[in-house]
Amino acid sequence: MPPKPQNLKNPIIWFFASLIVLWAAPLFLPTFYVYLITEILIVSLFAVSTNVLLGFTGLLSFGQVAFFGSSAYAVSLLIKGTSLPFAASFFISVGMSALAALIIGLFCMRLRGFYFAILTLAFSQIFFVVVYKWTSLTGGDDGIVGIPKKPFLFFNINGPDAYYHFVLLVVMVSLALLYLIIRSPLGEVLQAIRDNSERTEFLGLQVRNYRLASFVIAGTFGGVAGALFAPFQGIVTPELLHWSHSAEPLMISLLGGMYFFFGPIAGAVIFVFIKEWITGFTEYWMFWYGLLLMLLIMYLPGGIMGFVSEHLKRGKDDSR
C-alpha cells in the first residue's frame, strides 16, 4: 500500500525560499553548474508530470515523449519558421500537447496495466515515425539545429544565467500548480483510483474521466518541459521522441520515490549528477545506472524518498 503523502507544513514559505535560493545560485556557481541545474529543472518537471500518472493515478504511460517531444518540435518550428513572439510559440506548443494528450487519452482510457503502457507507446511511436520521416518539415534524422533563445515578452532570456532564471520561474510555477492539483480533491480522487479503482467507481465517481484528466495534466506539463528543453539545447532530434526516451521520467520517478510529490525531483537531481559523475570516468554510465535501478526495484521499491521517510518514521517511533 502506498504511503499517505505528507503535506508540507508551510508550502508558500518553501516555495519562495527555494525560489530565492535558486535564483541567487548563479552568483555563486560556475556556468557549468548553472547549466546542470537548468537541465535538472527541466527533467524534474517532465518526471513530476509523468509521475502524476505513475505514482498518483497508478497508470504506467510509456508514451510521455509524445507530448514532451512534439512540444519541443513545435516550439522549434514556430521559433525558426515564423515571426511569432516566443511567448506565443511557447503557449501554442503547450496547448498542442494538451490537445494531443486529450485525443490520445480518449483512446487509451479503456486499457490498464501493460496494455495501457503498450498502447501509449504505440501512439508515441507514430509521432516518432512522422517526425523521422517528414524530412521537409522536421529535418528528419538531422533534426532542427540552431534554435535561438528569443525574448520572452519583454525579458531577454539569451545567455546561460538569463535562460536559467526563465526556466526556474516556469518550472517553479508549474510545480506549484501540480502540487496544488495533487493536494486538491481531484488529486485525492486520483489516489483513490490508484489504490482501488472499483471502490472509487462504486462511490459514483467517473473513474474514466478522472483518469483522462490526469492524462491531460501530465501531457500538458510534459509539453511545458519540452518547450523549455528545445531552446535550452538549441537542437532537437527524433531521438527525443523515441520510445526508449519515455523510460527516462519513469526511471527517475522510481529512483526518487514515485509515491512522493518531490520524489521525481530528488530522482532528477540524482539522475543528472550520476550522469555527470559517472561519465567523468567511464562512458558506460547506463550500465551503472541500470544496475542501480535494478537493485533499487529489488530492495527499495519505494525509492530514495521512501527509504528516507521510512527511516525518519522509525526514528520518531523509537524516540517515543
Binding site: L60, S244, L250, Y284, F287, L293, M298
Partner: peptide, 28 residues
C-alpha cells in the same frame, strides 16, 4: 536473481525492471 523478487509486484515495476536489464546488457 532479480525477477524472482518481483513476481508479486505490479506490471509497472516489472516493466521498469526489465527495462533496467536493457540498459545493463546494452552497455555491457
Amino acid at each position: 536473481v532479480p525477477l524472482r523478487k518481483i513476481y508479486e509486484r505490479s506490471h509497472a515495476l516489472q516493466l521498469l525492471m526489465t527495462f533496467s536489464f536493457i540498459l545493463i546488457l546494452d552497455d555491457a
